[in-house]
C-alpha cells in the first residue's frame, strides 16, 4: 500500500452524507442546466456558440464528482480484514461506504454529461 499523498484521503471521515455527494452534485447540476437555459433564453434570447458559464458549471460538477470518486477509491483500498468485507467492523463499513460512493460517482459522472449534451446540442430557445 502506497503511503503519503493518499494517506489524508484515507483518513477522511466517511458517513452516509459523503455517500450522497456525487448524486447530489448531479441533482444540483441538473437544476443548474434548467435554470441556465431558462434565464439565458429569457434574457438573451439565444445560445452563445460557446456557453462559457454553462461549460464552467459542468466542469465544476464533474470535478466535484471526480474528487469524491477518487477519495472513495483510495478509501476502498484501505488494508484491513480479509475479503469478503461484510462484517460489522469499522474497516468493512468504511470499505462498503467507499465502494458505494465510488459506484455512485461513476453513475453521476455519466449522468452530468448526459444532462449537459442536450443543452449544448439543441442550443435553441424555441
Amino acid at each position: 500500500m502506497k503511503r503519503g499523498l493518499p494517506g489524508w484521503a484515507q483518513r477522511l471521515r466517511v458517513t452516509l452524507w459523503t455517500l450522497i455527494v456525487p448524486p447530489a452534485t448531479w441533482a444540483v447540476h441538473f437544476l443548474f442546466a434548467y435554470l441556465w437555459a431558462a434565464i439565458n433564453c429569457a434574457k438573451v434570447g439565444r445560445f452563445a456558440t460557446f456557453p462559457t458559464l454553462f461549460v464552467a458549471g459542468t466542469v465544476a460538477a464533474l470535478l466535484v464528482i471526480l474528487a469524491s470518486g477518487w477519495i472513495a477509491w483510495q478509501q476502498s483500498r484501505v488494508p484491513g480484514d480479509p475479503a469478503p468485507h461484510e462484517e460489522s467492523t469499522d474497516i468493512d463499513r468504511l470499505r462498503f461506504l467507499a465502494k458505494s460512493t465510488l459506484l455512485l460517482s461513476g453513475l453521476s459522472f455519466v449522468a452530468v454529461i448526459f444532462t449537459a449534451l442536450p443543452v449544448v446540442f439543441i442550443g435553441d430557445c424555441r
Binding site: 455519466v110 454529461i113 448526459f114 449534451l117 442536450p118 446540442f121 439543441i122 442550443g123 435553441d124 424555441r126
Partner: peptide, 17 residues
C-alpha cells in the same frame, strides 16, 4: 455507457428545430 452516449449524440440533432 459508450453506446448510450453515441445514441444520444446521434439523436440529439433531430431535436434542434
Amino acid at each position: 455507457t459508450i453506446l448510450l452516449t453515441v445514441i444520444l449524440i446521434f439523436a440529439l440533432p433531430a431535436m434542434r428545430p
